[in-house]
Simulated assay, not measured.
Amino acid sequence: MKPFDILLALWVAVIWGFGFVFTRYALTEMTPTLLNLVRFAITALPCLLLPRPKLAWPVWIGISLLLVWQYLTQSWGIAQGVPAGLTAVIVQSQALFTIAFAAVLLGERPTRVQLIGIGVAACGLLMICFTVGYDFSFFAFAVTMTAPISFAFTNLLLRRARDVPMLDLFAWISLASLPPLAAVALLADGPAAIAASLTQLSPGVMAAMLSLSIGSTTIGYWIWGRLLHAYTAAQVVPFALLVPFIGAGASSLVFGEQFGPLRLSGMLIVVAGIAIMLLFGRARPLPEVG
């Protein structure tokens, strides 16, 4: 890769990692439902300039609903006390579930190295399970664990849109996600609470929302898609391994999050398992969401 493109890949990993920090910060003034409604509304704005990609409606609806569930559950988990750094690691475990679901649903036999990576990552998740119940509930952890599962199903559907530009794709997917997000926000928060919250947002939270929407999603995916078109997945995808490290490190510095020896070991083992799958398992390209 060219040095400039390496810097771009590193920058994307940084903004995706910090996305978990911005999410926790925004949740100090917004509910998870409102946060995601505003985020997807901003992300959908490029639809005014970009053509709608050709994609079957069942795929559109499936991806939209899965993304709504993924972002709602991971932000709800953070709101319930699941550390943002730990959430970053949990979400990246989608690589494990993607390979497993592809094997079960599509008959794709994982390689021996991929099976080793799945086993290593699963051991790390099990270690994290043993730390649950002290600073956040097991229920919050269980709900957060559905985010990478939803992410994995999204990956399988996204295989039908490999030739579609990522910027166009996610802008229009964001637009399709607005109706279910608006319905959930109205039911969970109510019109009065939504209006009051939007009129009282601090400049810091507004900046965090713009960073999540424009930085992490719009610009991040545009750069990521550009890199995937210019280089092989084996050259680009490994940079995503930096996301959980950056997310955990930034959360520790900004919020003072601390991880005990068992949880920290589990987090490192999960990332090690993902690294085995991506670097040595000859896995298919796995789209990443910050």
Rank of each mutant, 00 (worst) to 15 (best):
G215W: 05
A192H: 14
I246P: 00
W224V: 00
A234W: 07
I246G: 02
M206F: 10
A233M: 05
S197R: 10
V236A: 05
V236E: 02
L201C: 12
P244M: 11
I194H: 04
S197P: 02
W222K: 12
S216C: 14
A208K: 08
A196W: 01
A207M: 15
T232H: 13
Q200M: 13
A208D: 01
A234H: 15
A196K: 12
S197T: 11
T217D: 01
V237Y: 00
T199V: 08
A196V: 04
T218K: 00
I214K: 13
G215V: 04
Q200A: 15
S211H: 06
P203V: 10
S213P: 08
I246H: 04
S197F: 03
M206E: 12
W222V: 01
V236M: 08
F239E: 02
S197W: 04
A208G: 07
S216I: 03
T232S: 15
S202H: 12
A193Q: 13
G204Y: 14
G247D: 01
P203W: 15
M206V: 12
W224M: 14
V205H: 01
S211M: 14
L212T: 01
A196I: 04
P244F: 01
L227Y: 11
L198Y: 10
D189R: 11
S202A: 08
L242W: 07
V205R: 00
A230D: 13
A192D: 13
A195R: 14
P191W: 13
V205I: 14
A188T: 12
G204P: 05
L198I: 13
L198W: 09
L227P: 01
P203R: 01
F239I: 07
A196E: 15
F239H: 03
I219D: 04
L210P: 03
I219G: 07
V236Q: 02
L201P: 08
S213A: 15
I214W: 10
W224I: 04
L198Q: 10
A240I: 01
T217L: 12
I219C: 05
G204M: 08
Q200T: 15
A196M: 09
L228R: 08
M209Q: 14
Y221V: 03
